[in-house]
Design a protein around this nucleic acid. Structure first.
Lengths: 156, 156
DNA sequence: TAGATAAGTTAGCCATGGCTAACTTTTAAA
DNA sequence: TTTAAAAGTTAGCCATGGCTAACTTATCTA
C-alpha cells in the first residue's frame, strides 16, 4: 500500500501512529500557538509601517478585531521580547529582530496565500484560511508549497 | 496582474486588505482555537475506541503529551458540551454528537495528510503539520484539497 | 490657547489549558 | 484477601489573551 492510498481508508479504520510521535505533534501545535500572537502583531506592524510610516495601536486593534487594552498589553509583551520599540502614547516600531521575524512571516504568508489561490480557492477564503494555516506550516511544507506553485505557474 | 503573481511581490510592498475583512479573518482563527481542544480529544478518543474498545485517560494523556489532571479537566468540559459519556474512574465513550464530530475531524485529517503527502512531504512532517493545519481548513479549502488530490492520483 | 475629542493606559475581571501535590479509587499480585 | 501499584480526581497554581470601566495623555479645532 502506498502512502497516497491512506486517504482511501475506511471511515472506521484507526491509524495507529507511535504515541510519542503523536504527542510530539501536539506539542508542536501548542508551541506554534505561543508564537502566533507575536507573529501576527509584527506582521501587521510591518504592513502598517509601510502603508503609513508608523503603526498606531488604534489601527492594530481595528485590523486584529480586538480592543485597545488588549493591544497595549500585547505590545508590552512584544517589547519585553525585544521585537518592538516604543514609548508610551507613541507609535510602534520594529527592532531588527522584529523586522526579521515580520519579513519571514510575510514571505510565508504570501506563499501560503498564493498556493491556496493556485488550487482555485477564492481570494477571501485563501486569505482567511492562510491566516490560520501559516502558523503551522513547517519549512519542509513551505518548500513543498513553493515547489508546487512553481510547477503550477510554469505549467499554466 | 493576476492573483497568482501576488507571491512575486517585492518583500517590502504592503498588501492593503480591507481592515474589516482582516479582522474577520483573525476572529475566525480565534474561534478555531476554541474548538481545537474538543476536536483533538474526540478524534483521539474515536481512534482509541477502535483500537482498544475503550478510551482511557492514561492513553489520552500519553498521546496528547499532557498530564492526567489536564485530561480529567478537559474530559469534564467535553462531557458538559455533550460530546462524551462517562462515569468517574471509568473509560470514556463518545455520544452521538461526539462520534459525528470525530468522524468529520478524521475525514478532514486524512484528506489533509494525504494532500501533503501528494506534494512529496515525508510522513512524519505531513502528520505533524496536518495536526495544526486541519483546524484552520475551511470546507472550501478542504474541497480544493480533495480535488487536487484526485487530479494527482489520476495523473500519476 | 482652551476645551472637546480621540487615543492610549491601567486595573481588574474572565475562560482556557497547561502544571504539581495530595488524595481516592481501581486493579493486580503476593 | 490483603496490600502495593497504577489510574484517576481534586485543589490550587500559572500564563495567555480576551474584555470593560475608569483614568491619563495627545491632538485638533473653535
Amino acid at each position: 500500500m502506498t502512502k497516497l492510498q491512506s486517504q482511501g481508508r475506511e471511515p472506521f479504520e484507526a491509524v495507529d501512529r507511535a504515541p510519542e510521535a503523536q504527542a510530539e505533534g501536539f506539542a508542536t501545535v501548542r508551541q506554534a500557538h505561543e508564537s502566533e500572537m507575536a507573529e501576527d502583531y509584527v506582521e501587521l506592524i510591518a504592513e502598517l509601517i509601510e502603508l503609513r510610516g508608523e503603526a498606531r495601536p488604534v489601527e492594530i486593534a481595528e485590523r486584529l478585531g480586538v480592543k485597545s487594552p488588549t493591544v497595549t498589553k500585547n505590545i508590552s509583551r512584544l517589547k519585553a521580547a525585544g521585537l518592538v520599540r516604543r514609548e508610551p502614547y507613541r507609535a510602534i516600531f520594529l527592532t531588527d529582530a522584529g523586522r526579521e521575524l515580520a519579513e519571514a512571516c510575510r514571505r510565508r504568508h504570501r506563499i501560503v496565500v498564493a498556493f491556496l489561490l493556485s488550487l482555485g480557492i477564492d481570494e477571501e477564503t485563501a486569505e482567511r484560511d492562510a491566516e490560520g494555516i501559516e502558523h503551522h506550516v513547517s519549512t519542509t511544507t513551505l518548500e513543498a508549497f513553493k515547489h508546487a506553485l512553481q510547477k503550477f505557474q510554469s505549467g499554466k
